[in-house]
C-alpha cells in the first residue's frame, strides 16, 4: 500500500503524518508512507486544502487532520 501525506510542512501536516504512522503500525500493514512537500506535486492531486491523505493515488481526505482511529478505518 502506498500512502502519501500532502502538505508543505505545516504543523497540521506533521500531526497527520504521525497519526498515519501510528495507524499503520497498529494495524501492522505493509505500507510505504511518504511526505509530499513539493507544491507542484501536491496540486496534481486537484486539492486546495492541506494536509491531505492519499492512499494508492486516491485522495481520501483533504484539509483536516484525522485521528489515528479514523485513519485505521480508511486503510
Amino acid at each position: 500500500m502506498n500512502i502519501e501525506i500532502l502538505g508543505m510542512g505545516c504543523e497540521k501536516c506533521k500531526k497527520l503524518y504521525t497519526a498515519t504512522e501510528q495507524a499503520v503500525n497498529e494495524k501492522s500493514i505493509n505500507a510505504h508512507i511518504k511526505e509530499v512537500k513539493d507544491i507542484k506535486q501536491i496540486m496534481q492531486y486537484g486539492i486546495m486544502s492541506t494536509p491531505a491523505l492519499v492512499i494508492d493515488g486516491k485522495v481520501k481526505i483533504s484539509g483536516k487532520v484525522l485521528s489515528k482511529d479514523e485513519i485505521k478505518q480508511l486503510l
Partner: peptide, 17 residues
C-alpha cells in the same frame, strides 16, 4: 471557507489556475 495559512498556497494556485 475553511482556511488556514498553511493552505494559502494551494488555494491561491487553485484559484488562478
Amino acid at each position: 471557507t475553511p482556511f488556514c495559512s498553511c493552505s494559502a498556497v494551494p488555494v491561491f494556485i487553485g484559484f488562478i489556475e
